[in-house]
Each structure stands twice: as structure tokens, then as C-alpha cells.
């Protein structure tokens, strides 16, 4: 049996899954199926929210306990989550209003913001968490799947 997945592996994969949900939303000019865009946007937002809640409620608190120095970076990540949530709201609003140009522009801005944020987490914070939490890390990572 393979080793249980680390925090880095599990959460990096979840990032990619979220990316794909956003990418899958397609607008087709006048033929755009807006109710569907609204549904897919909601599915993407729910996946992002699950990811954020896992980090903020499950991962960060024990990490801050065992590695007090990580409190700065985790606080920064929480701020990023706030910034991303603002854009997620804007995206949902553009979908609800069937504003194609705004939807595409916000979607791209959001995509860039998320990539910049993910790069910091995947390159720095998750490896730090795997080292600091050691064996506990894999148990925590497994709880992502249990979140709804």
C-alpha cells in the first residue's frame, strides 16, 4: 500500500481540481447557457470554499500551535482567501447578471490571483506544514475528503 498522501500532495491536487472547475465554465457568445454558467460557477465557488475552510479550520490551527513562527504566513494566507472571496462574489454576480465581458475578465483575474496564491502555498506553506506536523499531517490531509 502506498504511503498516505502528504498535505502538500493532497492540497496541491485539490488546487488543480478547483482550477479545472473554473476552466470548465464556457461561454459561447449569444448561445451561452447562463443558468448552467450560474450552476458551474456555484460549484466552483463551493469547491474553493471547502478548500479555504479546510485550511482555516483544520490545517492552520494545529500548524500555528506546533510552529508559532508559521502564524505570520497563515495570517497572510487568510488575507488572500478574503481577497479571493471578494472576486468569487463578483464572479457569481456577473454570472447572475449574464454579463459575458465582465464574467470573462473577472474569471481571468481570479485565475491569476489564485495561481499566485497557490504558488505560495504549494512552494512554501504546505512543505512547511508537512515538516512541522510530521505524521499528523497525513491524518489531517485525509480529513479534506470528509468536508462537505
Amino acid at each position: 500500500m502506498s504511503d498516505p498522501a502528504t498535505i502538500t500532495e493532497t492540497l496541491t491536487k485539490d488546487h488543480r481540481d478547483c482550477d479545472r472547475l473554473l476552466s470548465a465554465v464556457s461561454l459561447q457568445g449569444r448561445k451561452t447557457d447562463w443558468p448552467r454558467v450560474v450552476r458551474e460557477t456555484e460549484a466552483f465557488r463551493a469547491a474553493m470554499e471547502r478548500h479555504f475552510r479546510f485550511e482555516e479550520e483544520v490545517l492552520f490551527p494545529p500548524l500555528e500551535q506546533v510552529a508559532p513562527l508559521a502564524a505570520g504566513p497563515t495570517e497572510m494566507m487568510r488575507q488572500h482567501h478574503g481577497q479571493i472571496r471578494v472576486l468569487l462574489d463578483d464572479l457569481a454576480a456577473a454570472a447572475a447578471a449574464a454579463e459575458a465581458a465582465d464574467y470573462v475578465g473577472i474569471s481571468e483575474t481570479l485565475h491569476f490571483l489564485i495561481q499566485q496564491h497557490n504558488a505560495k502555498e504549494e512552494g512554501i506553506l504546505y512543505p512547511l506544514a508537512d515538516r512541522a506536523l510530521a505524521g499528523q499531517g497525513a491524518d489531517l490531509a485525509a480529513r479534506l475528503a470528509e468536508m462537505d
Binding site: Q79, G82, Q83, V86, D90, A101, D102, V104, G105, I106, E108, T109, F112
Partner: peptide, 18 residues
């Protein structure tokens, strides 16, 4: 957006990339 967050001005919409 960083400026917007710092000032707490969420009543204003800032222009997106496009």
C-alpha cells in the same frame, strides 16, 4: 485590490484585468 482591502472600500468596484 490590496488598496481596496486596506481601506475597506468594498462599496466600490475596481476594474478587472480586461
Amino acid at each position: 485590490q490590496s488598496r481596496q482591502v486596506a481601506l475597506g472600500r468594498f462599496d466600490l468596484r475596481i476594474p478587472h484585468m480586461h
